Simulated scan of single mutants.
Amino acid sequence: MIRIGWLLAMTALSLAMLPVGGCEQPRRSSDSLLAPPRPDGDPLSQAQQIVLDGLADADPQIRANSIEVIATTRCVRLMPRVQGLLHDPAVPVRFLAILAVGDLGYRLAADDITQLLEDPDANIRIAAAYAMMKLGRADYYKVVRSAVTSEDQTVRANAALLLGKSGQRDAIPALYWALQRPDSADKVVLQAAESIAMLHDERIYPKLWTRLISAYADDRVLGIRAMGALGTEQAKNAIITMLDDRVVEVRLAAAEQLGKLGESIGEARVAEVFEKDLLAGMDADGRHRVKVLAAMAIGEIRSESLARYLPQLLRDPAKPVRLAAAKAILRRTPL
């Protein structure tokens, strides 16, 4: 069973497609299905151009996803373009641009981040505090930690995300507090559980397991992603069982996370998307969703046999698919 919206959003290109833990979700523009770029140049050049075009796209979701690609592939040479989006009108775009500055240690944007500490939006302020912390100002950690008690559920969810990314294990009690609070919204509970997994607290395993056995495919995908973050042998074995899930999107999510953990066992599940024509009979959204997840898995598994599918994905009509393929290329050959 798959719920409406499918929370493909939550696989985060990491691309796919709700890139900010709790911030507003921008509308998807019809422009996201414009014709692909000309197929000239080598794949690496094409990938870079796709990301650059994405940063300037009219759709804030595409801009946000493009920033995420730059951050996760550590393409520091593209950070001057990201710096220009620190004052983007869309909150999710600003949020991810700030996180990219922190995660890549891009000190050339430190003055911009300092200004954003006074932003009217609390989500932006805590993102700026996180970036300052990553730039060497450890005293800003307490700003992020205190935000997890916010009455605003979006701020609480985003604070939980940032605590998980911080690597600070003393944040674990605060995350369990958010996880167990009766007033915490679903998005807070989901993010708190994943963030605890990111901090490698094995006590969260039973909570994650309940996601893997859910009747809903989107829950299973979220559970797989969190198990991948936990990264223990037990978590890896649990993900392996999901390679036999009846839903192709779940199988691909499992293959991706196993790739992150250094296991190529899911390679055949990715190849079958193309070799067995699993896209036949799907509507346009379903095809785009599967292609994005397949590209993400290819980027993590990094095998030559799967890389041969990337050129066709780089030319796909859908921008999210092209971005996912570009991310896979850049994961294999960083700029």
Rank of each mutant, 00 (worst) to 15 (best):
P206R: 14
P206N: 12
K207C: 10
K207M: 12
L208V: 12
L208N: 08
W209G: 05
T210N: 15
T210K: 15
T210P: 12
L212F: 12
I213G: 04
I213Q: 12
S214N: 09
Y216W: 07
Y216T: 05
Y216F: 03
A217T: 14
A217G: 15
A217D: 14
A217R: 14
A217E: 08
A217W: 09
D218L: 00
D219H: 15
D219R: 14
D219P: 01
D219Q: 13
D219V: 00
R220V: 00
V221G: 07
G223A: 11
I224G: 08
I224W: 02
I224T: 03
I224E: 02
R225W: 03
R225K: 14
M227D: 04
M227G: 05
G228N: 03
G228E: 03
G228A: 05
G228K: 01
A229E: 14
A229P: 06
A229V: 05
L230D: 02
L230H: 10
G231V: 06
G231R: 10
T232H: 06
T232C: 01
E233L: 04
A235L: 07
A235Y: 03
K236I: 06
N237Y: 01
N237V: 01
A238R: 08
A238T: 10
A238Q: 10
I239H: 08
I239A: 06
T241Y: 02
T241K: 13
M242E: 01
M242D: 00
M242A: 05
L243T: 07
D244Q: 15
R246W: 09
R246N: 13
R246C: 10
E249H: 01
V250G: 06
R251N: 08
R251A: 06
L252A: 04
L252I: 03
A253R: 13
A254S: 12
A254E: 02
A255F: 00
A255H: 02
Q257G: 00
